[in-house]
Design a protein around this nucleic acid. Structure first.
Length: 137
DNA sequence: GCCAACGTTGGC
DNA sequence: GCCAACGTTGGC
């Protein structure tokens, strides 16, 4: 199983909205970036991912899992763009802020820090462990 | 709201 | 295939 991180601006799609979708989950549409798309194509059912609020909040607020494999993005006719579906799994008891991540030497290599603009990114098992611990899991 | 970083587009 | 122009993202 692999680990990932999804970024979203809470103004356009928030953790609360994601949770409201429950077990059904929701299509992670609107990605128009090749790298991000390629990561989604690699995802498997059950893969775990962090849900990060960008712009406002700047923190990892919860954990989601992939519940549908990569398929065409329903919001465009452009066949280049695929996406997966994800569903909320649980809240971070204590959201982990970007500040905390940056202040943690073991997390200095995280894409969140290194590739700031990438909206779907891989997370290593080590990083996953550390962030979960910091978040109170 | 600003601006730096970076991805994409399009002319040549 | 290069690179300048342009658009977007996202932290501050």
């Amino acid at each position: 199983m692999a680990y990932w991180l999804f970024k979203s601006e809470p103004d356009s799609w928030s953790w609360e909205q994601q949770k409201a979708k429950g077990k059904e989950g929701e299509e992670w549409d609107g990605i128009r970036n090749y790298q991000a798309r390629n990561f989604m194509r690699q995802m498997a059912i059950g893969d775990q991912a962090f849900f990060y609020h960008s712009n406002k909040g700047l923190e990892i607020v919860g954990i989601v899992e992939v519940c549908a494999l990569s398929h065409p993005d329903s919001t465009t006719d452009d066949e280049r763009w695929d996406c997966v579906d994800i569903r909320a799994v649980k809240d971070m008891p204590k959201p982990v802020t970007l500040k905390q991540v940056k202040a943690t030497p073991e997390l200095a290599e995280m894409s969140l820090v290194k590739s700031m603009r990438l909206s779907v990114q891989p997370v290593t098992p080590q990083e996953w462990q550390i962030v979960c611990k910091m978040g109170g899991l």
